[in-house]
């Protein structure tokens, strides 16, 4: 069990309100990702849920019972820190055993859980090493192992992969997703990497300056972003946002169109522009097209074999059915 409910939660450091009143429900067994730009309050929110930070006002309920004043150890949550926070003077085995030792679980049960976790996380050969003798990815797995053995109601991850290199990150991402499928435990995962958010989440919570901008499944956010911030934040490369007269033609203050929803042609089309830098990824090519429509160049996706020289005059045609329209407050129209 691990349903978490935030009710009008706020947090201030001195005079600075980092989290304005916030309501959020995380259902049992859900993989929820908090995503947002740096400094928007993701870690703070996670620490409030963990109990490492006192909330200024509001209520937190875990499984329907009020946990606002419950100390962190009693909330039944396990946290994986960005710096891993392993105990450097203890062996991997002792690190993983620590929460069970504190809980007074008997030795046989401890060993059983350690062996199971070590097997699941490929740590069996490293149990007698110190954290200092492990690679970054292995340390990360020890930190996860230490969380798993507690059998918590929910896992909290604070940017657990940000210290790893790109290849390892993809691997760990899959491992964590796999673990979620297996354990079916609630997980809250903080990241500023929207690729991680898109690939792992059941539910994404997009935050900006402590405010929840939108909550929904990855595809929902991708296909129907609620406002221009979410539209620009979710998706890589970013959605093209166009203001001014071109937007007015569609009865909107801003229109947005994703790179894959623009057709590019050298002979005819709605908009005109010049090819700037092109990025060849093999499977796709992204062209940055300078046009009069917006200050930033438009990004257009084409097939991997498509080649256009720098400076070529081209025409662009947006696919009208995939056009997003936003009003003057940045909110989605229809």
């Amino acid at each position: 069990m691990g349903q978490i409910q935030l009710n009008q939660v706020t947090k201030s450091f001195g005079d600075v309100q980092v989290i304005p009143p916030l309501d959020l429900t995380i259902e049992d067994g859900e993989f929820t990702v908090f995503v947002g730009p740096s400094g928007c309050g993701k870690s703070t929110l996670l620490r409030l849920i963990a109990g490492l930070e006192d909330i200024t006002s509001g209520h937190i309920a875990i499984d329907g019972t009020d946990a606002t004043d419950v100390p962190p150890a009693k909330r039944g949550l396990a946290m994986v820190f960005q710096s891993y926070a392993l105990y450097p003077h203890m062996s991997v085995r002792k690190n993983i055993a620590f929460p069970m030792r504190m809980a007074g679980i008997d030795q046989a049960e401890q060993n059983r859980r350690i062996d199971a976790a070590a097997k699941a996380l490929n740590l069996t050969d490293y149990l007698d090493r110190r954290p200092g003798q492990l690679s970054g990815g292995q340390r990360q797995r020890v930190a996860i192992g230490r969380a798993i053995v507690r059998e918590p109601a929910a896992f909290l991850f604070d940017e657990p992969l940000s210290n790893l290199d790109a290849a390892l990150r993809v691997g760990m991402r899959l491992e964590i997703s796999e673990m979620h499928e297996r354990l079916k435990t609630t997980m809250i995962y903080v990241t500023h990497d929207q690729v991680e958010a898109m690939t792992m989440a059941d539910k994404i919570v997009v935050l900006r300056a402590g405010i929840v901008e939108q909550v929904g499944s990855p595809l929902e956010l991708y296909q129907r972003p609620g406002n221009t911030f979410v539209a620009g934040f979710i998706g890589s490369p970013k959605m093209n946002l166009i203001e001014g007269p071109e937007a007015a033609k569609h009865d909107a203050a801003t229109i947005g169109i994703r790179p894959e929803h623009i057709d590019i042609s050298e002979t005819e089309g709605t908009w005109q522009g010049t090819v700037g830098v092109s990025e060849h990824l093999g499977s796709d090519t992204f062209f940055h097209i300078q046009s009069g429509l917006s200050a930033e160049p438009l990004t257009v996706r084409a097939g991997g074999e498509r080649k256009l020289k720098y400076g070529t005059e081209v025409f662009l045609t947006p696919q009208i059915e995939h056009l997003h329209r936003f009003d003057q407050h940045g909110l989605r129209i229809a």
Binding site: A73, F81, L86, P99
Partner: peptide, 27 residues
């Protein structure tokens, strides 16, 4: 001493005496 280690120990259920004994003192 890394503050996150103490926080991790706190979440792992170690009261302050045990945090001192198992984390601070070895450090």
């Amino acid at each position: 001493l890394d503050g996150e280690q103490l926080e991790a120990a706190e979440m792992d259920g170690a009261p302050s005496i045990k945090r001192f004994w198992f984390i601070v003192l070895p450090h």
